[in-house]
């Protein structure tokens, strides 16, 4: 049974450890306990925000590469954590619509939203993505873990028609993927990047490094020119 008392700061921290631990262990019971609590949804969204913050920190190399200033960097971490929350919410809506359409069951959006938010708990370890070499492997492991947690959440509520729920989850993800490819969505993302980071556009690390190399190339060639001119003067 889970210690899920949200009456004091100490008990909230204790509940955080218990709930995150439960999701990591893929225990369906933790979903039931959180959803039964009056503040369960808020609590799950708080975990989702922490997960978003941590995974954004883990992937912050893109912010460093684009030379985002320190204050903007901190602001961007919060903004991109919020974007994780928003995309999880959109995914929850897609799953909710598809589950109610594909299966005979009628789910409440708030339950799906709580379940999806809770399933992001493995990403609280997203900061580990920063680790050189191991980070990329950890990134993959955490993403698979989130999917497994999502499956566990579905098991907790709808074990009879798990296939339909899984299909809804996959279709929900596909529809979000298609949505993110739409030109309007791409423009929104570009605006969000500019607003969050204060830089003009997101450029890949390799492109930025290539720009830097051409500047070194030019500087070296200028130096060659200077040396040749001073050599001629001496002559």
């Amino acid at each position: 049974m889970y210690d899920f008392d949200l009456n004091s700061l100490g008990s909230i921290i204790s509940a955080l450890f218990h709930v995150i631990g439960g999701v990591l262990q893929l225990d369906p019971e933790v979903y039931r306990v959180v959803m039964a609590h009056p503040y369960g949804t808020r609590f799950a969204v708080f975990i989702l925000f922490l997960a978003g913050l941590s995974s954004t920190l883990g992937q912050s190399v893109v912010l460093f590469a684009n030379r985002v200033k320190l204050r903007r960097f901190l602001f961007s971490l919060v903004m991109f954590a919020i974007s994780v929350v928003v995309s999880a919410f959109l995914w929850a809506i897609a799953i909710w619509l598809l589950v109610n359409w594909l299966t005979s069951n009628t789910w409440l959006l708030i339950d799906v939203w709580t379940g999806v938010a809770l399933s992001y708990a493995p990403l609280v370890f997203g900061f580990l993505i920063l680790l050189p070499y191991l980070g990329r492997i950890i990134d993959d492991i955490l993403r698979v873990w989130v999917l497994l947690a999502m499956l566990t959440g579905s098991l907790a509520f709808y074990p009879e028609n798990l296939g339909g729920v899984v299909l809804a989850g996959i279709l929900g993800w596909v529809s979000l993927y298609l949505l993110s490819s739409l030109p309007l969505w791409v423009r929104v993302q570009e605006w969000y990047w500019r607003f969050s980071t204060g830089t003009k556009k997101q450029t890949s690390t390799q492109d930025l490094v290539e720009e830097y190399v051409s500047e070194i190339h030019e500087a070296a060639n200028e130096m060659r020119g200077d040396t040749a001119v001073s050599g001629e003067d001496e002559a």
Partner: peptide, 16 residues
């Protein structure tokens, strides 16, 4: 140490 190891490079590149 591992977690902090990329920071020297990132800090330099970002010009912090």
């Amino acid at each position: 140490m591992a977690l902090l190891s990329p920071l020297e490079t990132l800090n330099w590149w970002a010009g912090w």
